[in-house]
Structure formats: structure tokens, C-alpha cells
């Protein structure tokens, strides 16, 4: 319904301030909650600005159909879906090609961090629901999913942390919002296992010079290191709460 006149759009003003008041190297406000759902074995909600991603994890559990099981490692399944009301124009509930591609790259971003060989013939399932989309949903999804995996007690080499960098004119920017994603010149989402330094998701659309790409990738990694600290804090908070519950006698074995 709302049309944006591209010619009048100023993504970075003369003082270097972006549409939401940030500077080029600033992240959006980040809010992380781990273990907010009861039925799921692991869950996390990550908000990056207005983007909200909810992730849940089940498993490791028996693989069906059985012939799909891998005899020497667990299989990771990931599904990324957007709520119909997460975007300006209502999205149809059926998964789009975009949602299926993102499911695949998110799975492949998480896979290298998980000790899949600990659980042969099983499946670990990750479901991500985007409650609100305002740019950077795949990076918020990965941040939430890796926390949900940790919350479910799945052994990992480390958390997976993600953020996008990009280009607006001749300026690199960190953590693109929706307007910058749509009307900016390049979008470079990056996921990394900070504990090992491995980059596990790397995509780009738009164009960047060789030099600018290097700067953008460095900027994304700087952002990742900040988010990683916040993820660890959120996870620690979750387990401290759990410890208090156990010591307080509130804890009882779950139903399933």
C-alpha cells in the first residue's frame, strides 16, 4: 500500500546518520530471550530492531522415514517460515521459494557447529518462525536457532552468530534494516562460529568492489563478535534461572 519514492529516499544523511538514527557501524537494538516456550525442547526469541525471529528445536530423535537416517551422524533439518502478518502486505501461508532457499542456507550455516556424529541415525529439527520482518531475518533466524540448539542441550563446537553488512552508496553499513536492504546497493549476510572462526553462511546481492567487500566482511565480523557476547550472556542467564529453579525445588521432569 505504501509506495516509497526512491529518488527522494536518503539512506544516509550528510551527518552520516541512517534512516533509524544509527551510524554506519552500529547494530540495531538487540534483545535475546532463551527458553521462552515450554513444549519445545529448546527455544529462543531474537529481536534485531523490529525483526523478530522465534526458533524452536526438537531432538535428537528417531528419524522417519528410517531409510533417510544416516548411520554415522545425525541429520539436521531446518525450516524457515514467515508469519502471514510479519510483512507490510500479507504473505500467503504456503512457503515461497525464498523461504525454502533460506531454510537450506540456514541449515548449512548451523550444521558445522553441531556435533552431529554424537547421534547417529537420529534427526535434530530446527523450526524458525519470523514473527516480524524488517530486514536481516535470516541472520536473526540463525542467532535464534543456535541459541535454541544450545537451550535444547545439543552439543556444539560453539554458537553460530550472524549479521549482515552492506553498501549504501560508497559507505559500508552494518546490520541493514528493511529500507537499506531494499534500496541499498549491496547486502552481505554473514554467519560465523566465533569459537572457531569458521564462516558458515555467506551470501550477497548487489555489487561491491573488491576493497569494499573486504571492509564489509570485516565490519560484519566485528558485529558478530558483539552479538556473540550478548548471545552468551542470554544463555548464561537462562541456565542461572534454571539452576535457581532446581535449587528452589521448582523443577520437575517434563512430560515427554
Amino acid at each position: 500500500m505504501k509506495e516509497i519514492d526512491e529518488s527522494k529516499l536518503i539512506l544516509i544523511d550528510s551527518n552520516g546518520i541512517r534512516t533509524d538514527g544509527r551510524r554506519w557501524n552500529e547494530l540495531r537494538p538487540l534483545r535475546i530471550r532463551v527458553g521462552i516456550l515450554d513444549r519445545a525442547e529448546g527455544s529462543a526469541l531474537v529481536e534485531m530492531g523490529k525483526t523478530k525471529a522465534l526458533a524452536t528445536v526438537y531432538g535428537p530423535k528417531e528419524m522417519f522415514p528410517k531409510h533417510m537416517a544416516n548411520p554415522d551422524r545425525a541429520i539436521l533439518r531446518a525450516a524457515y517460515r514467515m508469519a502471514t502478518f510479519s510483512v507490510e502486505e500479507r504473505k500467503k501461508p504456503q512457503p515461497s521459494r525464498r523461504e525454502l532457499e533460506l531454510s537450506k542456507v540456514i541449515k548449512e550455516a548451523l550444521e558445522p557447529a553441531i556435533m552431529l556424529h554424537y547421534y547417529p541415525r537420529t534427526v535434530i529439527e530446527v523450526y524458525i518462525l519470523i514473527l516480524q520482518a524488517d530486514g536481516g531475518t535470516r541472520t536473526a533466524a540463525i542467532n535464534a536457532a543456535s541459541l535454541a540448539l544450545a537451550d535444547a542441550g545439543i552439543p556444539m563446537k560453539g554458537l553460530v552468530t550472524a549479521v549482515a553488512a552492506g553498501r549504501v552508496g560508497d559507505q559500508v553499513v552494518l546490520d541493514l534494516n528493511d529500507v537499506e536492504d531494499k534500496y541499498g546497493d549491496a547486502d552481505l549476510p554473514v554467519a560465523m562460529i566465533p569459537a572457531t572462526g569458521e564462516i558458515t553462511l555467506l551470501q550477497m546481492d548487489g555489487t561491491m568492489s573488491s576493497d569494499m567487500f573486504e571492509r564489509a566482511l570485516k565490519l560484519a565480523i566485528e558485529g558478530i563478535n558483539i552479538i556473540y557476547e550478548r548471545q552468551r550472556d542470554a544463555l548464561k542467564r537462562r541456565f542461572l534461572e534454571l539452576k535457581e529453579k532446581i535449587l528452589g525445588g521448582e523443577f520437575y521432569a517434563s512430560r515427554d
Binding site: A40, L54, T56, Y58, A79, R81, T84, P93, Y127, D256
Partner: peptide, 15 residues
């Protein structure tokens, strides 16, 4: 009115 029962809510729901 529509309802989406995704596995987020329960392991009993499938995609």
C-alpha cells in the same frame, strides 16, 4: 480466518 499449526508449537505438528 486461517490457522498455521507449525512445529514451533508442538512436536505433534508437522510442516
Amino acid at each position: 480466518t486461517g490457522a498455521e499449526l507449525t512445529p514451533v508449537a508442538s512436536p505433534a505438528f508437522e510442516l
